[in-house]
Simulated assay, not measured.
Amino acid sequence: MAAKHPKRSTSFLPLEIIETILLNLPVESLLRFKTVSKSWNTMISDPAFVENQLHRSKTSSSRNLLLGELGFSHYNSEDYSLVKIDKDRKLQTLQLSEYPPGSNVVLSYCDGVLLLTNDRQTCMDFVLWNPSTGTHATFQFPYEVNPRSQKIYGLCHDPRTGGFKVVVVVCLKYYTVYSCKNNSWTRKKEFGDTSFLVVYDPHIFVDGVFYLLLMDPGIYLITYFDPVDDEFKILRKPEIVVDHLWIYMADLKGRLCVYCNANDGRGNAIRIWIKGEGVGNNYWEELITIENVPTYIWFFKPLCFVENKILIQLYSSRLVLYNPSEKTFEKFDIERSSVYCEYFPYLDSLIDPGAFFPAQEKEEVVIEKLISCS
């Protein structure tokens, strides 16, 4: 009598389950899995999947990934390193990312995409680069501007088209807006009171907009660029923050924060406030007071939380962890040392910058109005 063999059954997971599993994988794995089948490639390439994956990255409990530009100067940097802070106070280099040839100066960042150029002063050539995917797209700035003029750059999404917008503020007199979808620069607009100066570094991208901190002697204004109507708007700062103190901005927990010296600037403590979630939310609450700060506030830059501790950059190169319970600073073991280090928030993102440009490249960028600013 022949032996009975159990019937083999083949089961297939529903696409919804497969999508849920894939959304929990890093971008490096997703790029490999696009080659599994046409259906998987279609799913992972779908704009809705890309958006969901970005949302997962933003809401991840682990936000202690940084993209480090390590080098001897801002204009002579090495490749960018993706670094992670572990529990043993070590800065681990996870991978190295080669920036697009000829463009290694970071001007702004948005949802895992960096705005690069080859020269901060002239800034005629721009690159949108996603270090997670290695993809990039290039375009040019068509205006003639005095290299000595102060220029500020911002990057954000256009909620109407889903593409990117690049903003260039020149001399705090005018600004131009570049739309990747239309491959065009809009006309320059009046910026406002030219007596204000920009506290240049940093400007912060959160809430779908980028924030700038403006300063007039004794007065600070927090402004943001609204990509819906291409206007700069003023955000109310925490009431307890008085104008005569030095104040700065930071991105902590994916939220806008401002910080200043405690005790009217006479002590060695720094207070940090965090803004309510959403661009229209003007609610502020105190996040933490960091005591025993070993430096002046202009050499102090909070980067991210590592569990209940805060990673802080001091003197542009030194990294420390602040322990709120013990009110102490813990030193880091760094794999490599550098005279100059700059770190940017890192988001694992599938966004392909080139996907937001017209399918057929134009020989010249469309310019509605050309105005020079010297």
Rank of each mutant, 00 (worst) to 15 (best):
A2P: 13
A2I: 02
A3I: 01
H5Q: 13
I17Q: 00
R32C: 13
K38V: 03
S39I: 08
T42V: 06
I44F: 08
D46H: 10
L54K: 00
H55E: 11
S57M: 05
S60C: 13
L65C: 09
E69R: 14
Y75Q: 12
S77R: 07
E78Q: 13
E78C: 09
L82I: 12
K84V: 05
K84S: 15
D86Y: 03
K87I: 05
L91A: 00
L96D: 09
E98G: 02
Y99L: 14
Y99A: 13
P100W: 10
V105E: 13
L114Q: 03
L115A: 13
L115M: 08
L116F: 10
L128P: 09
W129E: 01
T133A: 04
A137S: 14
F139S: 03
F139H: 03
Q140P: 00
N146G: 00
S149Y: 03
K151S: 02
I152G: 07
Y153M: 01
H157C: 10
D158T: 01
V166A: 07
V168R: 15
V169Q: 02
V169W: 00
L172Y: 05
L172R: 12
Y175C: 02
K181W: 06
W185E: 02
T186G: 10
T186C: 05
E190I: 03
T194Y: 06
S195H: 12
V198F: 10
V199Y: 05
Y200R: 13
V206Y: 09
V209H: 02
L214W: 01
P217G: 00
Y220S: 04
L221H: 15
D226M: 03
P227M: 07
D230Q: 05
E231G: 00
F232V: 03
P238R: 08
I240E: 15
D243W: 01
Y259C: 04
R266I: 10
R266M: 08
I270S: 11
I274E: 15
V279T: 06
G280E: 15
N282H: 14
L287Y: 11
N292R: 14
Y296F: 02
P302C: 04
F305W: 07
N308D: 15
I310Y: 02
L314H: 04
L319C: 05
L321A: 03
N323M: 05
D333K: 14
I334D: 09
Y340E: 14
Y340D: 10
L350Q: 05
L350C: 03
D352E: 13
P353D: 08
G354R: 12
F357C: 03
Q360A: 12
E361V: 01
K362V: 07
E363K: 14
E364T: 11
